[in-house]
Structure formats: structure tokens, C-alpha cells
Design a binder for these strands. Structure first.
Length: 273
DNA sequence: CAATTTACCTGGGTGC
DNA sequence: TGCACCCAGGTAAATT
């Protein structure tokens, strides 16, 4: 499922095909995904030129002079750049033709989103879905101090607090488990009981894991495919995720799987204290 | 009131 | 072949 690295890999993949090009057509094959598609999206976009692309958390941003298109891949979405005459498949719900190519969004489970934020509604960071997000994990503001400061008074487990996204964004289920393993922190520990020293280590491993995953083209589990149709291979680097019962790569102890907040967590009971 | 928990959306995969 | 069930990310509602 697309987490921050997959979204960033997607952004880098589509950006050269989008930036500086003009939208010539929009095709919708469904009424919407998580939310209805914006009304008159074709009218809004056709004839307008894409100025740049960006990303906020797991939201892919396509900037125009008059507003920003927000694309969220949900858990099963992906984007491809294709020749416009490519026949659409069952779950290809959204096409945006740019120049002589088409940006096509497929999302079988339709947990994703395509939204429009007009410039006259204010800066994109004020968007209802973006304004409550935590800091970007790869930007300078995010460090051990930041984690420590914002976890005082948080009694939930560190795993769930990472996933919540209000302190730091983009750390989904896979990378939360992987980061905590590398930082040697037990995912069940209450966030407010973890000290500054361990948070410095955790911030560092979160940065490392995400940066590595981006370099390796993201992970491919189930539905995620990179823009060129090839899969990433970060999943080959997993230490704990989806390795229930398999020996820890460090100490050979069987990897344990537990449920926290209705989500699976994977960890090594020996390495992570 | 802020933090936390629960419910919800969808459809592919699994197991009976 | 069918079908109940599970799981996932992120939001909103409910609860503490």
C-alpha cells in the first residue's frame, strides 16, 4: 500500500510528464473514490498548464496557476503515464490527458481521492485535510526533540502515535514497524514513557528507512506499482514487516505479530525493548 | 477539551 | 461454486 516513499516515487515518476504541460482532456469513469470527484473537473482543468508537482504526507499535489489538484492513492491506488489510446481497465477511474500522454489513476478499492483546491481558497497547507498533518519526516524540523516534545501526554503506544500522523506524517504501517525495529524500541511502549535519547534514535531511523525506501523505488505489496509499471524492491529489505514467525535477521528470535488499534504490528521481542 | 477508541468505506484474497 | 470473513489508510464519530 502506498506510504510516503511510494507517493514520492510516484511523484518523481510522473513529474517530467506533467510539469509545463497543458491539460487537454479529463475523463471520469466513476462518480468518485472516497469522496465524489469535484464537479466540472474537466472545465476546471482543461486548457490550464501544470506548473509544478509536490507532496504533503501521502498527498500528491499538482499545482496550477489557479489551484492545486490533490491526489491520494489510498491503499490500492496507483498512477501510470500511458498513450491516450490505451484501453482503460476495470478500476481505471480517472484520466487527465496532458500533451500526447495520459495520466491514469487506478484504484480498485476506491479509498483514494482526487480533490481540487482553488487558489482563492487560500494556500494549500490550509486545506482541511492538510492542516492537521504533522511535519514532514525528511525535513529539518523533524528530529528527536520534535518527537519528544510532542509525545508528552500521549499515553497511546508509540506505534499508534506514529501512525496517527498528527506529529509526523507519512509513517504508515510498514515503515512504523521497520523504523521501530531499527531503533530497537518495543512498539507497545506508551509514547510518553520514551525518553529523548531514544527519540533521537527513532527520528534518525525513520529518516533512514524512508530515504532508503525512496531510493529503492518503494515497496510493492499487493497493489502498488511504480509509474513505469515496474515494482520497487524495498520489501526485500524488510526486517520485521510481514515476517511473522520467521527468524529475526539480527538474533534469530521468531518475529512476533500483534494487533494495535486494529492494525498489525511486527517486531522482534528480543531486539526491541 | 484533548486524546483515544471505534466504525466505516471497498474488493481481492483466503478458507471453509 | 459460493460466501463469510479478514485486512488495509485515513477520516469522522463516539467515547474516555
Amino acid at each position: 500500500m502506498p506510504e510516503l516513499p511510494e507517493v514520492e516515487v510516484t511523484r518523481r515518476g510522473v513529474a517530467p510528464h506533467l510539469e509545463g504541460r497543458t491539460v487537454t482532456a479529463v475523463t471520469l469513469r466513476h462518480t468518485g473514490l472516497r469522496w465524489p470527484f469535484p464537479a466540472d473537473l474537466g472545465t476546471t482543468l482543461v486548457g490550464h498548464t501544470i506548473r509544478s508537482t509536490g507532496r504533503r504526507g501521502k498527498y500528491l499535489l499538482v499545482h496550477f496557476d489557479h489551484g492545486t489538484l490533490l491526489i491520494h492513492l489510498g491503499m490500492s491506488g496507483h498512477l501510470r503515464v500511458l498513450p491516450p489510446d490505451t484501453p482503460p481497465k476495470k478500476h481505471d477511474h480517472f484520466d487527465m490527458q496532458v500533451g500526447d500522454q495520459v495520466l491514469r489513476m487506478s484504484d480498485p478499492r476506491r479509498f483514494g481521492a482526487v480533490l481540487w483546491h482553488a487558489s482563492n481558497e487560500g494556500v494549500i497547507d490550509n486545506h482541511l485535510l492538510l492542516r492537521t498533518l504533522g511535519v514532514e519526516p525528511l525535513e529539518a524540523q523533524f528530529d528527536g526533540q520534535w518527537l519528544y516534545k510532542h509525545t508528552r501526554g500521549r499515553t497511546a503506544s508509540i506505534k499508534q502515535v506514529l501512525l496517527a500522523g498528527d506529529i509526523v506524517v507519512g509513517v504508515g504501517n510498514i515503515y512504523a514497524s521497520e523504523s521501530l525495529f531499527r531503533a530497537r524500541i518495543n512498539p507497545r511502549i506508551a509514547a510518553h514513557r520514551i525518553g529523548l535519547e531514544r527519540y533521537v534514535r527513532l527520528a534518525q531511523t525513520i529518516r533512514e528507512v524512508l530515504a532508503e525506501a525512496i531510493e529503492q523505488g518503494g515497496s510493492t505489496l499487493k497493489d502498488f506499482l511504480a509509474v513505469n509499471g515496474q515494482s520497487g524492491y524495498f520489501q526485500q529489505s524488510y526486517f520485521v514487516y510481514a515476517r511473522t514467525g520467521e527468524p529475526c535477521r539480527i538474533c534469530k528470535t521468531p518475529i512476533r505479530q500483534i494487533v494495535q488499534g486494529q492494525r498489525s504490528t511486527f517486531y522482534c521481542p528480543n531486539c526491541q525493548k
